[in-house]
Structure formats: C-alpha cells, structure tokens
Amino acid sequence: MTPEPVPQPSTDAPPEQPQPVAQPTHFDFDWSAAVNPLIGVDTADVPEQSAAEQSAASPAAPATAEQQPQAVGAAAPVPAEELVRKNQHGDPLARRMGRNVRRAVGGGSREAREMAAFVELMQRSVPSTRQIAIASVRGGAGKTTMAALVATELARHRQDRVLAADADAELGSLPLRLGVRSQLSLFDLAGQNPRSFEEAARFLSRTPEGLFVLSSTRGGRIAGEFTLETFQNALNVVARYVGATVIDCGAGILTELNRGVVAASHGLVLVTPGTVDGALSARGALEWYAANELGDLLRRTVIAMVSHAPQVGADLHRAHQMLTAWGLPVVFVPYDRHLATGSSVDMSKVSAAARSSVTRIVHEVFARALTAPTR
C-alpha cells in the first residue's frame, strides 16, 4: 500500500505568534497602613502599579553624602498617594453642598464665634517655644494622625514658626502623614550648632502650609534607634527658633524616651480609640502619670477619643463621664474617610466634623500650654 503523503504546511500560513511571557504577580501592600494601621482601610482598593509607573511618579533623588547605603535589592519607598485608588473626602458630596447652603443663608453663627475665639488665641505671643506632646497608650490609636493634624492647624494660624518633630525611634510615619520626605534626620541635626534658623532649616522639610518637619527617618527608612539625649539635642538646636513644637511620641507611655518628652512638654494630647477599651486605657494612663510625678502636666492635658470605624457601639457618654471626672477636656474625633486612608493629610478633604474637633483640641491644649512655666 502506498503511504499517504504527509501534508506540508502552507507557505501562506501566518507566522506563529509568540506566547505572552507570564508577568510576576503583584501583591497589594498598603505601606501607609503598615506604618500607621487604621481600622477602615480597605486594602482591596489599593491599585497595582508597574515598576515603570512607580519610577516615573517618584524619580530617585540624587545621592548625598548624608544618605545611608541602600541594601541590595531594596525597593524605593512608594509615595502613600500612589497606594490610594480614590482620593477620599471626609464628607460626602451631599453633606458638603448642604453646609455651603447653610453658610449662604447665614447659618453657623456658633461656629463663627468659636472660630473667632480660636483665631484670637492663635495671635497671642508665646514667652518661649511651647512644646506639645502627642502620646497614646499603644499603637493604632491614631496618635500620628492627630500629631499631623494639630501641627498643621497650628502652622495654618500661627504667625511664628511651627515645628513637627517625630520622636518614634522605630519607623516614625509623621513625615508620611505630612506628605514630606527628608534625606536628613534628627541624627544629622544632633550635635550641630547652627548660628541661624536658615542653617538649621537645612535639616528640616516643609509642608505647603509652612510647617517645618524634623524626621526620625532618612528617606522614609529607619535611621536607627536613638536615646532621649539624642532627641533633645536635636530638638534644642532648632526649637529656640520656633514658636510651637508638636512632638509625635512613640507608642506607649513607659519608655524613657516618651517619659522624657512628656515631662518636658507644656501640653499633652492623649490619644485613645473611641471605644470602651480606649477609655479604660486612657484612665490607666492618667493614673500612671499622676502616680509618677507628672500630676502637674495633667492640668494641661486634653484627651482625644478617635473613632476608627463609621459605627461605634461603645457607650461614649459613659466614657466621657469617666474621663471628665479628672477635670480634663475630652474631645471626640469622628470617623473620617480621608484620614482612614493612611496617606498624607489634606485639611481641605477632612470632614467638617473632624476639623471642628481638631480645632477644639488645638484650642484647648495651646491655651493650657501658654499658662505653663518656661522649662
């Protein structure tokens, strides 16, 4: 039997198309939530970006002598804004429109009076730089966010210089929340002897609101552990040139660094979650301060209870009664969608209710700080 001829491929057939090369899987990683976790951030909303897009959005800064060598294979830090799919506003659109209508018809007289009193306070001169510490019993309370809000609000209304200093020796995220990144840190400033503020400002970053920032990290990376002495040396170099300094303490109240910062401050904002557990932990902190020679500072303390979820089932009225029994102002800060993203704070996108709470916190703590003796 004659074998059948094997069919030959047609010369007119189109060339074989190359198979697509499998791309590596990109795992979502919420950097901002990792350094300052906040309940309510949906990591599913974090967009993927190619390396080329990240490189185009964040060109590498030229190397400086002060920069530390980067580990082999280490990726450049991703700006927090690139990890947020939608730039959330704290208030829904309908609420913002309703507020504008009320303003147009002459509503909000009480708010106007409160703001006038706040502006008058912000115009008062200080006998010496006023130091305000922002502390919390544990991490995740919203302390760094509160430090960014308090410092920004002061910088927006004060005529003198305002400094925000990061005293977190682990991975302080205050620069991230303020939208700045510095290649120099407090390590570089400690031991210097600048003869003017302009010389000291080389070691600082600055926000669009005019707030100066002293970072504990270099380029968003851990620079190393530091002692209370190192922090105070760096702070003293620049503090004499500013009217107010807001210090973001590390988590907890028992470390030597945090105790030293709080003891040297003229005012304290104690941040706690707006829950039953948060109220109990705040009470425990107050008891500890009173028993450890910080009772005098309690008269200049404001408690900020921060809600990290839209709905809170805690009996906040009972919590308020328990904490105000100490004779301290307790300010509730409502959940805010913009703040919950964990990216840099934009005051124009913070909800009206949250802004009002922050203004009251600043008013209460700064008024008390003005009455404190010079340290």
Rank of each mutant, 00 (worst) to 15 (best):
P9I: 03
P9H: 08
T11H: 10
P18N: 08
H26W: 07
D30A: 15
A33T: 13
A33E: 07
A33V: 09
V35P: 04
I39N: 14
T43D: 01
P47T: 14
E53Y: 07
P59C: 03
Q70H: 07
V78D: 08
Q88K: 15
G90H: 13
L93P: 10
G106W: 06
A112M: 05
R113P: 00
V119S: 12
V119I: 15
L121M: 00
M122H: 07
V126Q: 09
S128P: 01
I134S: 01
T145D: 00
A148V: 05
V162A: 04
D168P: 11
P175M: 06
R177K: 14
G179N: 08
L204H: 12
S205L: 01
R206L: 00
P208R: 11
F212T: 02
L214I: 05
T217R: 06
R218A: 11
I222F: 12
G224L: 10
E225M: 11
V246L: 05
V246W: 03
G250Q: 10
P273Q: 00
T275I: 03
R299W: 00
Q311M: 06
L316D: 03
L323M: 09
L323C: 09
V330F: 03
Y335S: 05
S348L: 02
K349L: 12
V350N: 05
S351E: 03
A354P: 04
R360E: 13
H363G: 09
A372N: 13
